[in-house]
Design a protein around this nucleic acid. Sequence first.
DNA 1: GCCGTTTTCGGCCCGACTGTTTTCAGTCG
Length: 568
Amino acid sequence: MQNSEIAKAFFDLANLLDIKGENPFKVRAYKNAARVIEGLGESIEKMVHEGEDLTKLPGIGKEIAKKIQELVTTGKLKKLEKVKKEVPPTLLDLLSIEGLGPKKVHELYTKLGITNLKELQEAAKKHQISKLRGFGAKTEEKILKGMHLLKQEGIRFLYAVAKPIAFNLKAYLLKAPTIIKVVIAGSFRRAKETVGDLDILATAKEPALVIDYFTQYPDIIEVVVAGDTRATVVLKNMLQVDLRVVQDKSFGAALQYFTGSKDHTIALRNMAIDMGIKMNEYGVFKGNKLLASKDEIEVYKSIGLCYIEPELRENRGEIEAAAKNALPKLITLQDIKGDLHMHSTFSDGIETIKTMAQKAKLLGYEYIAISDHSASLAIAKGVDEKKIQSYIKEIETTEDEVGIKIFKAMEVDILEDGSLGASKEILEQLDFAWAAIHSKFKLDKTTQTKRILKALQNPFVKGIAHISGRIIAKREPMQLDYETIFTFLAKEGKFLELNAQPERLDVTDVYAKKAKEMGVKFVINSDAHSSKQLEFMEFGINQARRGWLEAKDVINTSSLKEIEALFN
DNA sequence: GCCGTTTTCGGCCCGACTGTTTTCAGTCG
């Protein structure tokens, strides 16, 4: 059973109990546990099988641990089954309408007998809803409007897609009356691989003027809420944007609050409470005394912590590390000295080796590797016995012409049985190869893991590229025993690729952190198929930072000399 | 239901906005 399935069971349980009117703190406890499970790096099922103590996880106590055990071993949760008999589970769908929460759904169910979206729509059309106490004409209208917005729910935007949208909005807002600062905050600032909405923080002398100006942005299709200091709108592309405007003196406190994550901020505020301190978006206070507000460094310092980089703010141990002054010094784009995975017209790249090399030189790299596909991958028309000589010659010529070190490499396909899609005769003419899977993604976990390990045993293979094979929101990751693979990589001194393609970002942040803890070394590669795509390195760095990686964990931060030594 | 270096009981982040009220509950982030 996947962590996500277990988390969903607890979310459903929490929401149904909430609708039923159960103690809200108990509801919150279930939701907290669900979030912890969702964000966990390792399989809860595996932890149960290995007899690990689940109550060591934050937010999981004796009762929830027992329920997890029950779910994993029987596939069912008696308490959830029981609640589903008391409260129709189709009521959960009603919660996805803007403005409907557990209390209102409870009223609709008990007073009007509404159990699903269809009945809700009918009741709204007959104007039965506005007659209920606590409801009115506006709520009824909102329900009817919310019905057709529902389908769009839950879509997330790739970071790389959201970026230009965010920058356009920022440029627009910087022209707002009395504006001082504009920062894209939220999950975008934390550089998550996808963002569900954009959270923008602004400071201004007169916030209300900025809100008014914001709601006139041409790409808006709906203004959901607009008050004096905050507004929520939906853009034509269905991206939701939240703007918060505060006085400039509150910038640091507001930025911390609006960057999140929610779990991180709640943990900070709880820590502050223990110290007799109150934290909100206006500042950090002891009684009436303002301790900090103007910048984030000061805000963190006021509760005894050093500054925590946004990418780490997920309540995954960063607060404890900050308290001990043991945070990692995160890798930056400037640390990267070369790119070791890219394609050319010799396989499915759209530009020549020369164009790729020129662009790499422009980016300031000391070295690159051209790593076209092996011929076994028919779709990419790779390098076979007939092409290998011209491939090598072209790389050598370009190296001299452009004046940048170019490694002769290959992204060699891993076949179904774990053997490689290129012969020894081809491989021994190259500097090294990355191994990668491009087909048969659905093999079971044991078979898939063995397949990768077998490929990695080949001496020409220096590492594994885009390990999970996932395409965000399009293809599920393969089932793998990551621990076994990471153990092998660390022991053999082979490398784990962090693929920077914005829809891959493979490995994920959570697994990167785990691999690092196990002593694995990384290579961050653009996997560029055009010279423009060499700039994707930025997205790989984002993911690496979210995975707590430092320059010393990543081999392509090394100088050419060091890299050559590594490959010999 | 979870949690605890003052606590095993009594707390549980905190504030903006809306729509419905006639001073505030519910929802949201």
